[in-house]
């Protein structure tokens, strides 16, 4: 049997296929389809310090080969999460990575500090790239200086492995990736959604309640693969690749470009069994190719 285990710096995973934040809730909904312990990890929906209502509907717009969402980080807040959702997720034996978002530096620091004290969390993923909230998220992810300062502070506040999720909505993602690495990020997640919009022609108005939303699905995959490819060449820390992955071939593109793990997002909405199927297809692929570890093909397409 091929060994699917993978080390992302300080983060050790049983396999390199994760559920992407924002598409998997707090895991509960998918647990009725398969055992969550099969997953490399579940990256839960963005958690903020205080409860967040989210954006007005419509929040979903279908697009060619993808979709826009403008959820706006709706979540119950840290306290309710720790009381209710987290224990349930742990009882389902999931490997849990917590995605955190904030309006201020202090929000991120408090979240990082408090979650650091909780047993059973594998890592934190900093959401510096949500295109759907005004105050936080993207504000920290657009500027090298602001982002670097935040990452260094969170790094000092927290003992957990630190993943930084970068936005593709910038001129040069490599510059951000390098800055994240030098500020103390252990791992990079590439990419968050691409900011976009759809206009309802019959109403002559934006379709989404929030006007703009984040594009995901197969439509963004070539952009994501390119960004993983470029970032891989300039940083040493491992990359989790995501963006429009729904099958083995899609995932392999990311590994070959330089990702050491992948996350599945909107494909979960189409077929809830996407991730377990991908894990078993990957296993078979590695066996038929005689691979002992996924590391043997990571970055193999680099020229």
């Amino acid at each position: 049997m091929a060994n699917l285990e993978v080390n992302l710096g300080p983060l050790k995973l049983k396999n390199p296929v994760l559920a992407a934040s924002g598409t998997f809730g707090f895991g509960e909904e998918y647990a009725s389809f398969f055992e969550l312990e099969k997953l490399g990890a579940v990256i839960v929906n963005s958690l903020t310090l205080k409860p967040k209502q989210g954006n007005p509907p419509p929040r979903i717009a279908e697009t060619p080969a993808g979709m826009l969402n403008s959820i706006g980080l709706q979540n119950p807040g840290l306290e309710a999460f720790l009381e209710k959702d987290f224990p349930r997720l742990k009882s389902l034996n999931a490997a849990v990575i917590i995605n955190i978002a904030g309006d201020t530096e202090d929000d991120y620091l408090t979240l990082a500090r408090e979650l650091s004290e909780i047993n059973g969390i594998l890592a934190l993923e900093l959401n510096l790239s949500c295109p759907n909230v005004k105050e936080g998220g993207i504000f920290f992810g657009n500027s090298v200086d602001v982002m670097s300062r935040l990452i260094s502070k969170v790094r000092r506040a927290c003992r957990l492995p630190l993943i930084v999720k970068l936005t593709p909505n910038v001129t040069d993602i490599v510059e951000l990736a390098e800055a994240a690495e030098s500020s103390g990020a252990d791992i990079l997640s590439l990419i968050n959604t691409l900011k976009g919009m759809v206009i309802d022609v019959s109403k002559r108005s934006p379709l989404l309640g929030n006007i703009t939303g984040g594009l995901s699905g197969p439509a963004v995959r070539p952009v994501a693969v390119r960004m993983v490819y470029e970032v891989y060449r300039s940083v040493k820390i491992p990359i989790i690749g995501m963006g429009g992955i729904s099958n083995l071939d899609d995932a392999l593109q990311f590994f070959l470009a330089g990702a050491r793990a992948v996350a599945v997002g909107s494909a979960n909405f189409i077929d809830p069994y996407t991730i377990p199927r991908l894990i078993s297809d990957l296993q078979q692929f590695m066996e038929s190719e005689g691979l002992h570890s996924i590391d043997e093909i990571v970055g193999a397409a680099q020229r």
Binding site: F24, G25, E28, E29, P57, R59, I60, Q74, N268, F269
Partner: peptide
């Protein structure tokens, strides 16, 4: 998603 995970159909 239709199953409650994505919070889309608010």
């Amino acid at each position: 998603c239709g199953i409650g995970a994505c919070q889309g159909c608010a």
